[in-house]
Design a protein around this nucleic acid. Structure first.
Lengths: 341, 341
DNA sequence: CTTGGCACTCACCGGACCGGAGTGCCAATG
DNA sequence: CATTGGCACTCCGGTCCGGTGAGTGCCAAG
């Protein structure tokens, strides 16, 4: 009973603070929300909530502000996910529909997400790790120079130039090409790599083995090349300008961190499970620069496997239900697009 | 005489204001710089300079601040380019040396430039327009599916999948491949395109013409695909945080413009000539958002042709000699790298 | 043309003051 | 025993001085 009302008070405080950005007092609380009790009662509840660490006051005789712990409780127990409206869904779909390739999908998603949430959006490019091999092509530019092309299910294309020690004729090359494709196509790249490694050993001894060795090595290297893993797109940095207060002290390091993709990747990468939206609030993570921000992320990718992560970074004082809904919706649409493609 | 001194006064005002960021008065001026005259004399000069529009005072009885016109004169006539120090040159070289491909060169350059100038750096990816064709490869994935690969002198690789109406055998393909390469390799892409268009007509009539037509069309389309023209890299946005004053009114629109690559491209693209460093000061350009910033740019590219543009965006109150030197130095090193590659 | 002197103008800083919002506590009440 | 009205208290934020100092413009003299 009392407990229920206390939670209601906490929820009201969070909602009010998020929308007004000002510490919220007992009077305003009972007026704006329909709690049928007097300000004094609310004050008592607030005293308890403060003692338990869910809210705090910036200074004596000011209203209350939610703490990280308060937001955490709000997100975990008080949030009811509000589905996107039909119009919003259509907007998302039409915004993403025009995409022509993988890069374009990522670019559009990140812009869309930043506009929907009015915050900084981050989208990680699909990881190689979970993608499958669609096709391998070997082209002899000259008898001793090979162009090795690796096409993946995500639409990514990796290519390598390979100098051979010996010359190779078109026939052995065709044979090798079909063997390689048989070993790799359709496999997740981890499996494809091990399958390929076994291939040279299965050949009849001879000069071809050396060529196969080189090709396999190149392919495996291209597969495990994680430069492309680490690519991310960021948009909406200008929304940081709405951090009216504490500008140089708080926005500056954030901007730096956003350009420093390495940190950002770690931050984003922590959310592993697909489907679930995860929320990291304030100082819950180890990253100094993000101690006054929250990060809302989810995995995405075709099928139920999460190829990569996407999400938004914003002030702890953010509209969690709305943001979570937007992140989830965009992730779903992008996943669907990757599925079809 | 008087005129000479007046220019010296202007230069001193610019230099002082750039380093202190505060309106500079007559007393401070004679002390800090070795002008051998009294404050009163300087005041007279300042009165003239103000009348002519080179300086202004924020409010009565405050020091003077250079106007856009003042900076313009400073840049055009008072600036002595200070060459980079030996150590700086080494730093630039070693920073860029590790680059593995075109993307990497651009990424490294933009970071380097933002660090050298402590401002926002912008680097445009090399335009296709001026690059030459290095190699064209045609691969028959199946008898009726062709992979068309276009390799350009800048290192960029474009590839297209082509579905043929009819099947094509390896022999005609080899013939077509060599004809295409003979027509295109070594040419600037504009010339290559026209050369290629003439090719199908020169063939003996037959089914091959259709294939040649399709291949040529694909290649020309890939060459004129200007999506890659429009790519740019930006770094150092966090340096905007040092715009201490007028934050929400001035930084916000700037951040938005930086993400809006289209505007940025136009801004940057105005500098066409290679070798020369061009400076656009304050409201000299048509872009509202950049009316309180200056843009220092120069073209770069292998040889003397300017493939693309690179530069920095910063407050009108910036260290012009230093910035111009840095921009020029980076452009030279990048050009040299593209030359070698 | 330069220079020293002088009156004048403001922006800036610190202190005093006040109104208002909000709290904590207490006694009364159903 | 939870709830409520009342009341004294705190403290932030805005406003209104007055003093200070940097800087200017002007003028008369060298």
């Amino acid at each position: 009973m009392q407990n229920d009302r206390r939670l209601a008070v906490l929820r009201a405080i969070v909602e009010d603070y998020v929308s007004t950005e000002e510490p919220v007092g007992s009077r305003a609380l009972v007026e704006r929300h329909g709690l049928g009790v007097s300000p004094a009662t609310v004050r008592n509840d607030m005293a308890v909530l403060e003692e338990e660490g869910y809210i705090a006051q910036p200074h004596t005789s000011a209203g209350r502000v939610p703490t990280d712990k308060g937001y955490r409780l709000f997100v975990d127990r008080l949030t009811t996910v509000k589905p996107m409206s039909q119009a919003e869904k259509r907007a998302i779909a039409s915004f993403l529909d025009g995409a022509v390739d993988l890069d374009d999908v990522v670019q559009r998603s990140v812009r869309l997400l930043s506009q929907l949430t009015r915050q900084v959006a981050v989208v990680q490019y699909p990881t190689l790790a979970r993608s499958t091999v669609r096709h391998v092509e070997l082209v002899a530019l000259t008898p001793s120079r090979l162009l090795v092309v690796l096409i993946l299910s995500t639409g990514r294309v990796e290519q390598r130039l390979l100098e051979l020690a010996a010359e190779v004729d078109e026939e052995t090359l065709a044979d090798l090409r079909s063997r390689v494709n048989r070993a790799a196509v359709g496999e997740v790249i981890a499996d494809a790599a091990s399958g390929l490694r076994a291939l040279p050993g299965s050949l009849a001894p001879g000069p071809t083995v050396g060529v196969a060795d080189a090709v396999v090595e190149t392919l495996v290297e291209a597969m495990s090349d994680n430069r492309s893993d680490e690519r991310i797109a960021v948009a909406g940095a200008s929304n940081l300008a709405r951090y009216g207060d504490s500008f140089d002290t708080s926005v500056r390091p954030l901007l730096e961190a956003l350009e420093e993709h390495v940190v950002l990747l770690k931050l984003i990468g922590e959310a592993t499970s697909s489907g679930m939206v995860t929320v990291r609030i304030g100082a819950e993570g180890p990253y100094e620069q993000f101690s006054s921000t929250s990060v809302v992320t989810t995995g995405y990718g075709p099928g139920e496997a999460a190829l990569a992560t996407l999400g938004v970074v914003g002030p702890t004082r953010m509209d969690y239900p709305g943001t979570m809904a937007a992140v989830r919706a965009v992730a779903r649409y992008v996943s669907r697009m990757l599925d079809e493609a």
